[in-house]
């Protein structure tokens, strides 16, 4: 049984099919890249996987259990972490507090009206921050972080509930080439050590070809190619609609 099994996933907006009959699998310990032109349906696909959108039809199974109809917070509880294309963090909190929130939520202790939130799970939060190289910045307000650091913070937050699957929407957008490679190398390490599956979208083909175990290509809502990077790269259709002359 695969970690994630998607079959016949379909979603239409106002009669236009944004995602049509898409199916794929993600195995534990694997990094699957989802690429395609802007507007191909990548974000719609992602939003269905984590529960933000409800598919019109099709099935999504995580470890054999259907997640259709579940809200994002339920999907998260089933072990799906997510990072966003435009980072989403709590700007009025420190870096550590951001991670503490995920830990408090994971342990079901957020309803507490009395204890001091900032004193909870400090060591665990710092351990997670250390994993992504953010330990030194734990006390800084999240609002002053550099963009690359925000991305790493998001990764730490996503790891707080020991997820089985990570969904990363353009994880390296807006970063310098070296930072991109570093972040994905870090992700690859975590994938290996924790045996997590990763699905990510990306426009930087250097990142994709270097780190993806397999890739799938979406165009106008439909899956048009899939396989190991070398195969996809050689596909003339993919070259025409997406890769262009340079790759």
């Amino acid at each position: 049984m695969s970690l994630l099994e998607v079959n016949g996933l379909t979603k239409a907006f106002g009669g236009v099919r944004a995602v049509s009959e898409v199916g794929f699998t993600v195995e534990a310990g694997e990094i699957l890249a989802l690429i395609g032109p802007n507007g191909a349906g990548k974000s719609t696909c992602f939003n269905m996987l984590n529960g933000q959108l409800r598919p019109d039809s099709g099935s999504i199974k995580l470890g054999g259990v259907s997640t259709i109809g579940l809200k994002p917070r339920r999907v998260w509880r089933m072990g799906v972490g997510r990072t966003f294309q435009i980072t989403a963090t709590f700007g009025s909190m420190t870096v550590r507090e951001n991670v503490q929130m995920a830990l408090l939520s994971h342990r079901g202790r957020l309803k507490n009206l009395w204890v001091r939130a900032r004193e909870q799970y400090v060591a665990e939060a710092d351990a997670l921050l250390a994993r992504v190289g953010m330990r030194e910045q734990a006390e800084r307000p999240c609002s002053v972080l550099a963009y690359g650091d925000l991305k790493r913070l998001e990764l730490a937050v996503a790891l707080a509930n020991a997820p089985k699957l990570l969904l990363m929407d353009e994880p390296t957008a807006g970063m310098a080439p070296k930072e991109r490679i570093e972040l994905m190398a870090l992700t690859a390490d975590i994938v290996k050590s924790d045996s997590i599956g990763v699905l990510f979208t990306e426009h930087d083909m250097d990142v994709v070809f270097r780190h993806a175990s397999r890739m799938i290509v979406l165009n106008r809502g439909q899956l048009i190619a899939g396989g190991v990077p070398a195969e996809v790269r050689a596909n003339p259709e993919v070259q025409r609609i997406y890769l262009g002359s340079r790759h």
Partner: peptide, 27 residues
């Protein structure tokens, strides 16, 4: 006191980023 407790933090989390709050299990 409530604002400094996890409840108050969860409230602010929902204000700062409803997207992220939802993605870490906060209703």
């Amino acid at each position: 006191r409530v604002l400094l407790a996890p409840f108050g933090y969860a409230l602010r989390a929902g204000r700062d980023s409803p997207l992220r709050a939802d993605a870490i299990g906060i209703n």
